[in-house]
């Protein structure tokens, strides 16, 4: 059963990474300045000594460190991420409530950046040393060098403030009371600016990578073989060069998708998008460390899931891997 052992191997590795992140997280809480109980309660709530005493007892903060670690891990593994005293809600509920919005935003941004990036990179590789190719590369360099949050602000300035084409803030028009399709359309309209501005940077990354990868593949011997067959240039580009050039892009996309969740903090902050990125910003502003670390753990979880997914896709795309793993 090569596939089963493969999946087991991947899952095993992911579990180890998750446990490592948990330990890391635990020590971060303890590295935070001041009393861990105060950290958990958030600074402002830490004035009441009796309250802190309760917290200490409840979370066993008077116990030795290994016991605390054990309890903490036990808690997380039973999906207990603790309680946000600032927001007066369990951390898990807060995250789950905000998760769909973030998934929608990052999903859309991922799709936009990957498809447009590969397209632009392919065009740039085919038009190397020609003005149109240089233009694509120039633009991608520009997007690559622009701070994410600043692009977002400039987009708001141009498309919302000056042109008034698209909504600048939020997830849906407040108080409009749309339902059904109208609601979906409204959300989609709100999604455009955040998704595009979040996607721009990553699109630049994929464009550059695709171009480099295609140019290096086009130097390989089998491309000469394809030309010697008398194949048309378009077929060679698509079937022989692009297919091989996409392999490293898959790996990169897996890594970048994880970074996108982090980047969403900035985008969601600018657009007041109600996702976990925005939640992270709020936790940051309120020094709500318990919530902050909960979100951090969740981000890492998402990244691990995504990496496993890319791994599977890579194995489907490259026959050589399947064989050597079997």
């Amino acid at each position: 059963m090569p596939y089963l052992s493969l999946i087991l191997g991947r899952v095993g590795k992911a579990v180890i990474v998750l446990l490592a992140i948990l330990v890391f997280n635990f020590f971060l809480i303890h590295a935070a300045p001041g009393d861990p109980a105060a950290v958990m309660a958030g600074e402002a709530g830490a004035t009441d000594e009796q309250f802190l005493e309760d917290l200490r007892e409840r979370f066993g903060l008077d116990q030795p460190l290994p016991v605390q670690l054990w309890r903490y891990m036990g808690g997380v593994l039973t999906l207990d991420f603790g309680y946000s005293y600032r927001q007066q809600m369990p951390v898990l509920d807060l995250i789950l409530e905000r998760l769909p919005a973030t998934l929608m935003l990052t999903g859309a941004a991922f799709f936009i950046s990957l498809s447009l990036g590969i397209l632009a990179g392919t065009l740039a590789a085919m038009r190397v040393k020609r003005p149109s190719g240089s233009l694509i590369m120039g633009l991608s360099l520009l997007f690559y060098a622009t701070p994410l949050y600043w692009v977002a602000m400039m987009a708001v300035l141009v498309f919302s403030v000056v042109l008034d084409w698209l909504p600048a803030y939020g997830y849906a028009t407040v108080g409009a009371g749309y339902t059904g399709l109208a609601h979906a359309g409204d959300v989609a309209l709100h999604l455009i600016l955040p998704a595009v501005t979040l996607g721009l940077f990553f699109m630049a990354v994929y464009t550059r990578m695709t171009r480099t990868s295609m140019l290096s593949v086009s130097q390989q011997d089998f491309v000469k073989t394809a030309r010697a067959k008398g194949l048309a240039p378009g077929v060679i580009q698509r079937r022989h060069i692009l297919r091989n050039a996409l392999l490293p892009i898959i790996t990169l996309a897996g890594l970048q998708a994880g970074q996108m969740v982090g980047g969403a903090v900035l985008t969601e902050t600018v657009f007041a998008w109600p996702g976990i990125g925005r939640l992270m910003y709020e936790a940051l502003m309120q020094r709500d460390y318990n919530l902050l670390l909960g979100i951090f753990f969740f981000c890492a979880l998402l990244v691990i899931l995504f990496n496993m997914l890319t791994d599977v896709i890579y194995r489907l795309a490259d026959p050589r891997i399947k064989q050597s793993a079997a």
């Binding site: 011997d221 089998f222 073989t225 091989n244 026959p319």
Partner: peptide, 15 residues
């Protein structure tokens, strides 16, 4: 028709 020196790299690895 033409054949080349390096058989290891002259075929598309994904086809």
């Amino acid at each position: 028709g033409m054949i080349f020196q390096e058989p290891m790299t002259a075929l598309n690895p994904l086809m």
